[in-house]
Structures are given as structure tokens and as C-alpha cells.
Write a protein that binds this DNA or RNA. Structure first.
Lengths: 144, 144
DNA sequence: CTCTTTGCAAATCTTTTGCAACTTG
DNA sequence: CAAGTTGCAAAAGATTTGCAAAGAG
């Protein structure tokens, strides 16, 4: 997504568009990983050097409240993700990378439906994490 | 589980048994919710009034490293869970309760196997959260 | 006895808040 | 212009660390 599309999306959500918000949203939409607030700040400063960390937190809050992004608290840090579709987060315990696995077979969705009908819980969203070795690190075997 | 069984389990994990560690492990094993460090401290103080929050954190770290409990970071707080079996955490967004749903049909496990074979990720553990309305709050309808 | 753990207090770090100056619509 | 936003600095929490005293095996 380019700036124009993001700007339109923000307006549609009723968010006042400022240079700072555009920069933060752009960073998050284009991030393939799940950056922390600090990382969002560093990346946003590439295009907007004077942006403050306070504004990053403020903007992230606005984007979460309007449903543009979600926050994922991990043990090591809180990270932010613009991918709101059902998916699983794959965390490699060796190299630390976090990647998204799309819910291809609809397994996450069906797990959700199963639970809802069986337990009587009405789920509106979910979070699924798997911890282990990514393909690269698994192939690398015991070396490190 | 009673004190004796917990003490045995700790020893088996190579953890030196102290009154403090026994109290913390007992609180966590018998907790039906997922307490925060503060809550663990309050509950442990019922039997061991002088235990300090620093020791709670220290002990929790020991228990996590030995695989006796896991930590779950939520946006609002970090919580601890002695249930290491595959399950889903059901978080009610209205009343705030967190309950465990056992992986009855093996859906969590099969989702994991599906992902592992499809993406080439070797998962060793996982975390599954659903956010929504618990049975009680859903039945309560719009009232609150 | 020796080595580990505890309790306390200080230090860190992340996130939130307050407020005057500055933008956006 | 009026209301909402930003940047900075201070405040608030949560977690970690350092160290002398106490405890476990």
C-alpha cells in the first residue's frame, strides 16, 4: 500500500491524518516482521526524523482503537501487527524471527467455531502463536 | 496436588526446595485463573506473609526455566499458567475472566501438525487465545 | 559447612501523562 | 479558527539487579 491508500484508509476510520500518523501506519503496513514501539520509531524517523517516541505510542493507541492494527505482547516485548486476518505467528526460538502463517485450510477459523459451539464462548478475535524452529534454523541442524 | 507432590515434582526438576518456592508453586498449580506476579504474591502471603515480590519474580523465573509453568504476556499484564497441556485461553472482554478450554478434539494439536508439515516449521509449544464473550456475559446480553 | 536463595532497596525499562506550542480540516 | 495532535519531560509501573543475611542439603 502506498501513502495515498493508507491516508484514505485512515480517513475512512475517522482518524485525523497527520504526517506522523501516516508515517507510523506506513511502517506498520509495510513491515513483514512485527516491530516494537522502538523499532516503529526508528523506521518512522527515516522519513520523519523529529518524530518522538511519545507520539509513536499515542498513534499506536489510536490505530489499535480503530481496529487498524493489533498489539501482541510477547514475553520479551510488545509488538504490533497490521495483519488482522486469522493467522498463526511462528516464532523461531533460535533466530528470533516472527513470521505469519496464513490460515490456509481455515484451521484457525474452524478451531474457533468448534470451541464456540462446544463451550458456549462467543469469540470475536483470536491469537495463535507457535514456538519452535523456523525452516532455516531447523535445516541448519545443531550448528549455530 | 498437595505440598508433598509439588515438592517431589520440584526436586525431580532439580529445583532446590524452599518454603518460598513451594508456596509459589502451590499457588500456581492450584490457580484456576492465570494470576499476575502481584496476585501470586498476595496469595503466597496467605501462607508465607513475609515473602517479597522480588522472590516471586525470581521463583517464577526458575519455574519457567525448568518448564514447570509458562508465562503469558497479555496487553494488560503478564500472567502465569501451570497448565502446559495444549489448550486455548478464553478471555472475556466484558468481565475480564480467563479460562482454559482443553484441546478436546485435538484441534490445537492438529492445527500445529498441519502448519508444521505445510510450512516446514518445527513447533515445540504453542499459545492459543480467543477474545470475546464468556457464556455468562453472552447470556447477560446487552445489560452490564 | 558451602553454596544457593531471600529480602530489601536501588536501578532499568517501557508506557503513560501533563501541558504549551503547533497542525489539520 | 477551533479542536485535536505533537514533542518534551516528568511520572508511573513492572521487572531486574546487587548485596548482606538466612537457609538448604
Amino acid at each position: 500500500l502506498d501513502r495515498e491508500q493508507i491516508s484514505t484508509a485512515l480517513k475512512r476510520l475517522g482518524i485525523r491524518v497527520t504526517r506522523q500518523r501516516l508515517a507510523v501506519a506506513e511502517v506498520l503496513v509495510n513491515a513483514r516482521d512485527h516491530p516494537t514501539a522502538q523499532e516503529v520509531c526508528e523506521r518512522a524517523r527515516v522519513t520523519l526524523p523529529q518524530i518522538s517516541l511519545g507520539t509513536i505510542y499515542n498513534t499506536i493507541g489510536v490505530l489499535i482503537n480503530s481496529g487498524f492494527i493489533q498489539s501482541l505482547s510477547f514475553n520479551e516485548a510488545t509488538r504490533y501487527d497490521a495483519n488482522l486476518a486469522p493467522h498463526a505467528n511462528l516464532l523461531c526460538v533460535r533466530c528470533g524471527t516472527i513470521t505469519d502463517a496464513p490460515d490456509e485450510g481455515g484451521a484457525v477459523t474452524s478451531l474457533r467455531e468448534d470451541l464456540c459451539s462446544r463451550i458456549g464462548f462467543q469469540a470475536v478475535s483470536q491469537r495463535v502463536d507457535f514456538y519452535g524452529l523456523c525452516g532455516r534454523c531447523a535445516a541448519d541442524g545443531g550448528r549455530s
